[in-house]
Amino acid sequence: MIIRPKLNWFRLLFVWRGSVLPQLLPRLALIFVLSISAMFMHDHIRNYPVNLGTPPFALVGIALAVFLGFRNSASYERWWEGRKLWGELFITARSLARQILSMPNSLDPLQKRHFLAAIGGFAHALRHQLRGTDALADLASRLTPELHARVSTAQFKPGIILLWFGEWLAQRQRDGTIDGYALIAIDRNLNALSDVIGGCERLANTPLPFSYSVMIHRTIYLFCVLLPFGLVDGAGMLTPLFALLVAYAFMALEAIAAQIEDPFGLEENDLALNAMCNTLEAVLHDMSADPAFERAPKASSSSRLYILD
């Protein structure tokens, strides 16, 4: 994900990293070639065979803009819901850590450290599950050897860690360290973490209908391919300029919607899950105020997080 401060209007015109323009260049080059071809055919071929005019493109363009608006709204809603779910994870994790840290001193400090480290491991396990990557390397330094061995054979690792949280609390209740009221209060936060897992899995496993995306994609590219032949009669030498401007607007909107449709991916406009996990662990470390609670190594930068001036 690209994270950068707001730029002034002039610098924003020339931003490259984080823009979808690099991936659109080959397609825009095709539109440019078609524009030159349309100009050549219009000026040098007798009985010019293609004379579409602008009215059909005005009508189709308005309809296409409406469809793209719905497409982008649906994709952004998915992106924003993913961000809200991870915000809920942050809130719940901090509340859970506060409850554990405020327990009586009779609770073994080592047990507290294991629980806090496992909260960070839970976030990393969920991140890897949503991206389909291997979580074991990141979890090795955050979970106890017994829990890591248990998680290593599981397909849905966040659920196993969540189950361990419940087992840990049940054991503390049997030991008499916490009472039933505290167990109920903490269990509410565990249920909230379960809701976060379910919400994220719903987003990750239920993309927008494929036929809907294909229909918009085909319409955009057919529109952009034919556009130079409709503009050339009125725009003349400026046909490439206007064709490229319109094509860039439509193609860029479609490309951005395709990127943020899956908010948990590795593209530049997806959520910065690595940075979120690292921030959560920093918060847990500060809350513990325990010199013996060593921070695990930061997550790798595979999420392509860029922080730019």
Rank of each mutant, 00 (worst) to 15 (best):
P22H: 04
I36Q: 04
F250K: 06
L107C: 15
E267T: 09
M41D: 04
A185S: 10
Q259K: 02
L227Y: 09
T153Y: 14
V20G: 02
D262S: 08
L147A: 07
A58H: 02
I2K: 01
L273I: 05
A137K: 09
T133C: 06
L89S: 05
L208K: 09
W168L: 14
D138L: 10
P104A: 10
L101M: 11
I160A: 03
S152F: 12
L253S: 01
L226R: 05
V15C: 02
F293S: 05
F156C: 14
G53N: 07
L96V: 14
H114R: 15
L241I: 15
V33A: 13
Q171L: 15
L116T: 11
R131H: 07
M287E: 09
S211P: 08
S141T: 15
L183A: 11
F223N: 08
G159D: 13
S141L: 10
L147E: 04
E268Q: 01
L203P: 05
A117L: 09
G176Q: 12
A65P: 03
S301E: 00
N8A: 15
G176C: 10
Y212C: 06
L190G: 06
R83H: 08
R188C: 04
I197R: 03
G120L: 08
A58C: 10
L245K: 07
V246T: 14
F156H: 11
R98C: 07
S300D: 05
Q171Y: 15
F32H: 01
S288C: 06
G18Y: 08
G265Q: 00
F223M: 04
R4V: 07
N105P: 07
V232S: 01
L136V: 09
E281W: 00
I91S: 10
F223S: 07
P240D: 04
N189P: 06
I2A: 00
V214K: 13
P291V: 11
N278H: 01
P5H: 03
A58T: 09
L68V: 10
F264R: 03
A252M: 01
A272P: 06
R46M: 07
S37C: 13
I220N: 13
R113L: 12
S75R: 05
L203M: 03
A137G: 05
N205M: 09
W168I: 04
D108F: 13
D195S: 12
L28P: 01
